[in-house]
Design a protein around this nucleic acid. Structure first.
Lengths: 214, 214
DNA sequence: CCGCAACCTGCCCTTTGGTTCAATGGCGGT
DNA sequence: ACCGCCATTGAACCAAAGGGCAGGTTGCGG
């Protein structure tokens, strides 16, 4: 079992930590440049209260002061944004300051096995976002279009005007319009802007009324 | 401790599972419509070998057969895509079939505390993707616009027409156009479509000639 | 008070986008 | 040969977008 170190500005509170790890040390934030722990020999629990020192920056500093040590952030007011920021900065865990000892030990166990600990809420958001992301990559909408319609639709999704597309494909502007009208119909959108949102995979696409099919 | 059930097509292998959970049952895949476990009373470990039955669909079926039960997917050939798919489908864990008993117990503990278990590799990818995503949300372009211009710009980026925006903001359509003209000018774009691409953070935005400023 | 920026609007105009009603020709399947 | 799908186009038309000109209000800092 590695050495556990709690970093906090208020060294007098939070008995849950002592309960979870009786042998842990409890320290104030270290000064920049100091050595906090032997490389890789400790687990750092970082308590952040507000956003006065940017939590993400703090994590990066601590990482320098204790190279190779796992850093877990405990936040008084956890938010998905903050969690994302600290994890991006290199933390391996993010949870509420008020977590009960059992959960703290749980997290420690996961971290010591090389895992990352993320709260269910944030994780759900991550998964949803990622799924939406991959959905927009192999975006099946284009399969509904004919070869030529696809070309035109992609050009529109890139921001081109009808005239530009006509020049690029060496067809008349009228034909561009014809392909577009067909594409709108097939994809159930109203105009080129919504076509673009659909193809580019906008976060929140308004699901238009699909217009009576015939 | 809840009942653990292993679902696999090959009921003869994987002694690690028995080691981790000596009292666990081991069953073949259930037929559609059958009741697999009492609602919420079990943890289902689902072993998937290839992608013959789509793992995600399988998860959804199992979820019906054992409502309220946590489902953890064990994959012979884990991949980020597969992990993402099964988590999206409702699984609460995803790991390698070859996980050692200690890790299996670890996962079980996390799941029983209401957590989700995701391998570090996938999690890292999720975080990176999410970070990229949020970066494009608070994109600095909007800061160049006035409060009102920002509102209409966002509406346009969502696919709204001038008429709709006018109604929503309770201003005349002419004013909407005025705000838009100003926004185009400030952001150096030509029309609403390119505005949308800029704000929604299109992958490859054609960086238009910024039109001689004056 | 004056200048300035933001916000709001009407009138009128041009350009672009989108549709309706056509028609022509190729190509593959029945 | 015929049908369906696709690509192409013209003429005409209407709606939407975009912008020039002109004019208002409000609020804020010098």
């Amino acid at each position: 079992m590695k050495q556990h170190i709690f970093l906090t500005r208020r060294p007098d509170a939070f008995p849950a930590w002592n309960t979870a790890f009786p042998g842990a040390r409890r320290l104030p934030y270290p000064a920049s440049g100091t050595q906090l722990a032997k490389p890789g020999q400790a687990v750092i629990w970082l308590h952040v209260a507000g956003d006065k020192p940017d939590p993400a920056l703090l994590v990066q500093e601590i990482a320098l002061a204790a190279p190779g040590c796992a850093i877990i952030v405990l936040s008084n007011v956890p938010s998905d944004e903050e969690g994302l920021a600290v994890l991006e900065a290199g933390a391996v865990g993010y949870t509420n300051t008020l977590a009960v000892p059992e959960v703290l030990r749980q997290i420690a166990a996961v971290i010591e096995n090389g895992g990352l600990w993320v709260g269910p809420g944030l994780l759900q958001r991550l998964i949803a976002a990622m799924a939406a992301n991959s959905a927009q990559i192999n975006n099946s909408h284009l399969d509904k279009l004919s070869a030529r319609e696809k070309e035109v639709a992609l050009a529109v999704a890139g921001g081109a005007s009808n005239k530009e597309i006509a020049r690029r494909l060496e067809i008349s502007e009228r034909t561009v319009k014809a392909h577009l009208t067909a594409a709108f119909e097939r994809l159930g959108v109203r105009d080129r802007l919504q076509l673009s949102l659909l193809i580019n995979g906008s976060p929140q696409t308004t699901p238009n009324q699909p217009k009576t099919v015939h």
